[in-house]
Design a binder for these strands. Structure first.
Length: 474
RNA sequence: GCUCCCAUCGUCUAGCGGUUAGGACGCCGCCCUCUCAAGGCGGAAACCGGGGUUCAAGUCCCCGUGGGAGCGCCA
């Protein structure tokens, strides 16, 4: 049996971070076993499905690098097939038409809730041989659920879960307008697509018994089920747009690398001993649904930050640079235009002082744009009264040759020694002069990247500023 | 209300009857240092409660408690 997994989101919003992890698990499991991974769009709810949401899902999958062997398959393209199976079940008696009005159903449910019993269909039409006299509107189709015995779902994450069939009612598998419903199309699709392992959120665990029974009614062996726990926000509450990044594209926008998000996600609810950092190949090699945790897990944003920085430091600079360029673009900076430093060198200089690409882009802005004004506190502390040092720096740097970090370093320490100043008294004014603020990569590297021309111009500018301050001083 | 799931440091987790309960993030301290970081070293920090089973329980069973999910002509 070839392993076939599927990710089956409904296109009603964005690609949720929990959904992304489910997709990752499905993908890993298929890859691990040399099987197939199918992407299926569950769009039978014509009211709520949108093309924008479909695009958001596709875009998210692509950004994460989760490629599929088949799909995207759309359930709306398969209505004829669903109809065919429906007819067959009707003919075989495993499904029946139900003429109960919504009003009656609501009344039954309200009554059950008032009596504090589990709301369920009371089976009025279950054994009808012809439409009742009071039938109005088109009938729905219900699955004839066995009422005796138990249904055992051998879940590969949770273990054996036993459901009393008496608890299961006759669910609607086709609406009055003839369109099929979720619990039915899932079953038909999983059957037709030969899905061997259904890996999905554990909010579906309760559905498994009924789906499994429909499959049996169709004469098909149910797939292996593996229900993965939910992902909660930092506070341990259900993720929402308000409480945190629920959409994977928000992570891209916030400056995370897909590699970091993937690595973060795989360790959320799954572990391989003490290992924290995994290459894709290592994940594929070690992943198993049996090792997935049973309980929900909360997001830990600072750990994602740590992983993100790890990947910014260790991935090939050219790769990180491509992502950085995107964020620089958001700042209206085009690093490829040639009037700034090589972006890969910027990545190498900034990686160890950035948690995200957004942060890296913001902190690298001064390489491409002359700072507009100085950080007030830094200027007061380091620029005021530094006109002499800045002048000396200017002179020393003007003759540095070649313009390399080593030579620059010698020039700067030379000025410090000459004036018997600590390095901090020289490097900080210089730093504020060129970067506009008190933070930058090591000063020699900063200047090397910035180039001689820009360096000298900014030192001059800072010296002029310091001079003005001195004049206005009391 | 009924059914189902879940429970180890703040968080992510290792543990699969015998451990000084391990690692990671974060936090704190020290070192390094031209800034910020990064890095190195060290530290504080957990088995939800109660019963069993067993020579031995974080690990197995039961009951509580606390979370969560489901109970739609949504998926």
């Amino acid at each position: 049996m070839t392993v076939t997994t599927r990710f089956a989101p409904s296109p009603t919003g964005y690609l949720h971070i929990g959904g992304a992890r489910t997709a990752l698990f499905c993908w890993l499991y298929a890859r691990r076993h040399g099987g197939r991974f199918v992407l299926r769009i569950e769009d039978t709810d014509l009211e709520r499905s949108t093309p924008e949401a479909i695009n958001a899902i596709l875009e998210g999958m692509s950004w994460l690098g989760l490629d599929y062997d088949e799909g995207p398959l759309y359930q709306t393209h398969r209505f004829d097939r669903y109809r065919e199976v429906l007819e067959r079940m009707l003919a075989e008696g495993t499904a029946y038409r139900c003429y109960c009005s919504k009003a009656r159903l609501d009344a039954v449910r309200a009554d059950q809730q008032a009596r504090k019993v589990k709301p369920r269909y009371d089976g009025r039409c279950r054994d009808l041989t012809e439409p009742p006299a009071d039938a109005e509107g088109a009938p729905v189709i219900r699955f004839r659920q066995p009422h005796e015995g138990h249904t055992v779902v051998d879940d590969h994450v949770k273990g054996k879960v036993v459901f009393d069939n008496a608890e299961l009612d006759d669910l609607i598998i086709a609406r009055g307008d003839g369109t099929p419903t979720y619990n039915f199309v899932v079953v038909v699709d999983d059957m037709d697509m030969n899905i061997s392992h259904v890996i999905r959120g554990d909010d579906h665990l309760n559905n498994s018994a009924r789906q499994s029974n429909i499959l049996k009614a169709l004469g098909v062996e149910p797939p292996v089920y593996a229900h993965v726990p939910m992902i909660l926000d930092e506070a341990g509450k259900k993720l929402s747009k308000r409480t945190g990044a629920a959409s994977v594209m928000e992570y891209r926008d916030a400056g995370y690398l897909p590699e970091a998000v993937i690595n973060y996600l795989v360790r959320l609810g799954w572990a391989h001993g003490d290992q924290e950092v995994f290459t894709l190949d290592e994940m594929i090699e070690h992943f198993d649904v049996g090792d997935i945790n049973h309980s929900a897990s909360s997001l830990n944003p600072s750990k994602l930050d740590w992983l993100n920085q790890h990947y910014m430091k260790t991935l090939p600079p050219a790769h990180v640079a491509r992502h950085l360029a995107w964020h620089l673009g958001a700042l209206d900076i085009d690093p490829g235009r040639g009037d700034g430093p090589d972006i890969e060198a910027v990545v190498q200089a900034q990686a160890e002082r950035s948690k995200t690409l957004v942060e890296m882009a913001e902190n690298s802005r001064f390489f491409y744009r002359t700072p507009e004004g100085y950080d007030e506190k830094a200027a007061r502390k380091h620029l005021k009264g530094a006109e002499d040092v800045l002048g000396a720096l200017h002179d020393a740097l003007a003759v540095v040759d070649p313009w390399t970090a080593d030579a620059i370093h010698q020039a700067v320490t030379g000025v410090a020694e000459e004036r018997e100043l600590k390095m901090g008294k020289v490097a900080q004014p210089l730093r504020v002069a060129v970067a506009g603020g008190p933070v930058s990569p090591p000063i020699d590297i900063t200047l090397e990247l910035l180039g001689r021309e820009a360096t000298l111009a900014r030192i001059e500018q800072a010296r002029a500023w310091a001079l003005t301050q001195a004049e206005h001083a009391p």
